[in-house]
Design a protein around this nucleic acid. Structure first.
Length: 804
RNA sequence: GCAGGAGUGGCGGAAUGGCAGACGCAUCAGACUCAAAAUCUGACGUAGGUGACUAUGUGUGGGUUCAAGUCCCAUCUCCUGCACCA
């Protein structure tokens, strides 16, 4: 009998061995495979079993690729700018850099417990000036290309804290910190013109091997629509109002027009009689929060007293203001066709505005319309020269027809907005811009980067909605790099997304002081082949990264324009009843005790066994017993039989190839939970067979150890060594299944009568249909009554006898 | 409201249209033990039968098929995302 499996001794031994002699080495000849984890925020709470899951998945995949002959790029780093460190600083007075460094050290230690292939020589940290130098450099490049610009913009404003808030910091319309109702305030903001890339960001989704769900979320977020802009003259005025519509086919049915209260003409359209009401409406809308605006069940609005002219038929169209029209989509003004739009219908009904149906439903006009008919299908009516046309056809053709007649133009629109890029916070990258009274906005010269974040005395917001940086006069006051005149620095910082939008490029050349990444290394090691992380970044981080990569491609920094070829989103590990693990809920499971009691290998395997990797899973400690038992049995199987001297048999050969085939196909399909059950099942079969044969041939044992290596690397290395190998198991190629060896001579086939199984027979795989049917009939002879009308034999699957 | 995903034993979950419930957890019984733990063997959807077995069973109702958890139609529930984008 072999000595029992002692996971602690085995794991300790191999950690040391791997440190002395790494298994993943770049010999310059092997092809690269870049397998990346979404890098973590170094929180003070440390890792729980949920964090482990993604890291285990990526490591298993990396080790599998390693055994397939690749050099693996598998780096790790820290997304370390962000609010928790800043809030901790406000509370405790500890500099964020200090608390961050402590957290990094702690989490790094915990991550090392996973025994992943991480190459710490590649480590990056977004708060390291040598890193954010390049974050700032990209911003300067964007500024020079006109993609970073300043804009006065109504942002969320907390009147109690006297500070601007990000959307994420507004919870149910209230300030996350103090609970006050959030209003709006115009603040000068830095914006990135991501909309300039909308079309490419949409189109290039096609070439990505990403979950359809994520692609769809991005494409919805970008929100492309086709339509027309139509210019409506305003009665008694020079200016025209342009509206955007995706339904130009319904133009004849436009009975009113609505402008967003923020529309630049809104106030000026009021007449003497309506002025008071209009001004009040505009003011009320300006202080109303987004949330209130969305949650208002009933539509509100005010008539300006002014009319527009429908350019197609000359009809007078009253102009209203209403906050259901968004100021920053399309033109901020819409034509309203109550007969064919739900919102317009609701508004028209409330304010007694006429409703004109222009598309026949089921071939006729609807009497007493109770809801809008929104389908673009049916024949046009009440539409002048368009009468009789098919609405769906007209919808497509109308934009060009309108354009040809000079009434407007064919247009596409996107929901995607430019990216609000500035934060009034301390703990972020300073925006490297200098405001000069003579030269305007001037970027900090590239050779002066990084622009370091200065020390401050108070991390508290200043009270004016400016970053704490604004209070440091000696930092703010500088000279203009162009004309030398006294000038002031920008005091806003970048959002946390800035560093994470490009960090994956830096890993492969993280010490380069001359370039963000050298072209040579970029060409050799990038882009990322496999990206693994949670689905919560589906639009934000993943969209921003694609935008940054496309920009860097356009300025020649890299030669690819998509950062992540393949993406996998792992599900979340939750506590009991699907409740998210959190300190306050007290349901956090730490990996530490589990590693001590069961070992790293067992925990790695259980993280996979817990459920399909793409779905959420409830953690249950008890389940780990199962994989721990499996590892013990496997250990005993190998060590008790390695010297048995038993030669390969037909059965063991078949079992071996079946095992290789099953594990490999499941692994390729990323069905990692069934890979683990596959190991358990094979192990049970091997144990039975070894018992029956009085031993097991060495090659079969070796193959099993090889297959297990990516999942349970420590025990596999130990068994591999005990099987007499000097070189690491990871230098061994991934086994291949031979279809011939897997074949059965006989197969168990169910015999059904009218689809119900009545017997099971053994049939040679080479049997003819006649032979098979005959065997089947013989097996169920006593139950065959009536007329046999059909005989079905699917080789290797089923015999079905249809009787009447 | 719109879009996407999911409903299978006590639980987590398996099933290229071909014997539903693999694998594991929990439970029960047996072996070993003075005993317990560990380990090993076996049982384990539901109903009926001493039994080999029989009937029934994948949210619900229909349909296609020799054959449906799987395909089609309808419907209910849950989860996720988006949400006045004209």
């Amino acid at each position: 009998m072999a000595a029992p499996f002692n996971h602690r001794a085995v794991e300790e031994k191999w950690r040391k061995n791997w440190e002395a002699k790494p298994v993943n080495v770049n010999d310059g000849k092997k092809p690269k495979y870049y397998c990346l984890d979404m890098f973590p925020y170094p929180s003070g709470n440390g890792l729980h079993v949920g964090h482990w899951r993604g890291y285990v998945i990526s490591d298993v995949w990396s080790r599998y690729k390693l055994m397939q002959g690749y050099y693996i790029i598998h780096p790790m780093g820290w997304d370390a700018f962000g609010l928790p460190a800043e809030n901790y600083a406000i509370k405790m007075g500890v500099h964020p850099a200090k608390s961050t460094a402590a957290n990094v050290a702690n989490i790094k230690k915990q991550i090392n417990d996973i025994a992943a292939l991480y190459d710490w020589d590649m480590e990056v940290n977004t708060t390291d000036p040598e890193f954010y130098k390049w974050t700032q450099w990209i911003f300067v490049k964007m500024f020079k290309e006109g993609l970073a610009y300043e804009k006065e913009f109504p942002i969320n404003w907390c009147p109690s804290c006297k500070t601007g808030l990000a959307n994420e910091e507004v919870v149910n319309g209230c300030c996350e910190r103090c609970g006050a109702t959030v209003t709006k305030k115009n603040l000068r903001q830095w914006m990135l013109k991501i909309t300039a890339y909308a079309e490419r960001l949409l189109k290039d989704l096609e070439k990505l091997d990403w979950p359809e769900k994520v692609k769809k979320m991005q494409s919805d977020w970008i929100g492309k629509s086709y339509g027309a802009e139509v210019d409506f003259p305003v009665e008694g005025r020079e200016e025209k109002i342009t509206v955007y519509t995706t339904r130009p086919d319904t133009l004849y049915g436009a009975t009113f027009m609505v402008l967003a209260p923020e529309h630049k003409l809104a106030a000026s359209l009021a007449t003497e009689e309506t002025k008071e009401a209009v001004d009040k409406y505009i003011f009320d809308a300006s202080v109303k929060s987004n949330v209130d605006r969305l949650q208002d069940k009933e539509k509100t609005g005010v008539f300006t007293g002014t009319y527009a002219i429908n350019p197609l038929n000359g009809a007078r169209v009253p102009i209203w203001l209403s906050d259901y029209v968004l100021a920053d989509y399309g033109t901020g003004a819409i034509m309203c066709v109550p007969a064919h739009d739900d919102r317009d219908f609701e508004f028209a009904t409330k304010f007694n505005i006429p409703i004109i149906q222009v598309i026949a439903k089921d071939g006729k006009e609807i009497e007493n319309m109770t809801e809008a008919y929104t389908e673009a299908s049916g024949v046009m009516i009440n539409s002048g020269e368009w009468n009789g046309m098919e609405s769906a056809v007209l919808k497509k053709e109308a934009p060009l027809m309108i354009e040809k007649r000079g009434l407007g133009r064919k247009t596409v629109n996107y929901k995607l907005r430019d990216w609000v890029f500035s934060r009034q916070r301390y703990w972020g990258e300073p925006i490297p811009i200098i405001h000069c009274p003579h030269c305007g906005n001037v970027p900090v010269p590239e050779e002066e980067l990084p622009l370091r974040l200065p020390e401050v005395e108070s991390y508290q917001p200043t009270g004016t909605g400016e970053s704490p940086l604004a209070a440091i006069d000696e930092w703010v006051n500088t000279t203009c790099p162009v004309c030398g005149a006294p000038a002031k620095r920008e005091t806003n910082t970048m959002p946390q997304w800035a560093g994470s939008s490009w960090y994956f490029l830096r890993y492969v050349d993280n010490h380069n002081s001359q370039e963000l990444v050298s072209r040579e290394k970029a060409d050799k090691y990038l882009p990322v082949d496999m990206y693994i992380g949670g689905v919560e970044h589906a639009v934000l981080h993943l969209l921003y990264s694609r935008f940054y990569t496309k920009f860097l491609h356009d300025i020649g920094a890299v030669d690819f324009d998509e950062p992540f070829t393949k993406l996998f989103n792992q599900g979340m590990i939750t506590g009991k009843n699907g409740i998210k693990m959190s300190k306050s809920k007290g349901n956090v499971v730490s990996p530490d005790d589990l590693i001590r009691d069961y070992g790293c290998d067992a925990l790695r395997m259980y993280e996979l066994f817990v459920g399909p990797p793409e779905l959420d899973a409830e953690w249950d400690d008890r389940g780990i017993e199962g994989v721990a038992r499996f590892l013990k049995r496997f250990w005993n199987l190998v060590l008790d039989n390695k010297d048995s001297g038993v030669k390969e048999t037909k059965e063991s050969l078949k079992l071996r190839h079946q095992m290789v085939h099953d594990i490999t196909t499941r692994l390729d399909a990323f069905s990692l939970n069934t890979v683990i059950s596959g190991f358990m099942e094979s192990n049970n079969k091997l144990i039975d067979l070894a018992k029956k044969q009085g031993g097991m041939d060495k090659e079969t044992l070796e193959t099993a150890v090889t297959l297990l290596a990516p999942f349970a690397p420590h025990i596999s290395e130990e068994l591999w060594e005990q099987l007499g190998h000097e070189e690491t198991v990871f230098a061994h190629g991934w086994p291949k299944a031979d279809a011939e060896s897997m074949k059965d001579e006989e197969k168990e086939i169910a015999v059904q009568i009218n689809g119900k199984t009545r017997a099971v027979v053994n049939i040679s795989v080479n049997a003819t249909k006649e032979e098979a049917i005959a065997a089947g009939k013989a097996a169920v002879a006593d139950r065959l009554e009536g007329n046999l009308v059909k005989e079905i034999y699917v080789p290797g699957r089923i015999i079905n006898l249809v009787v009447k």
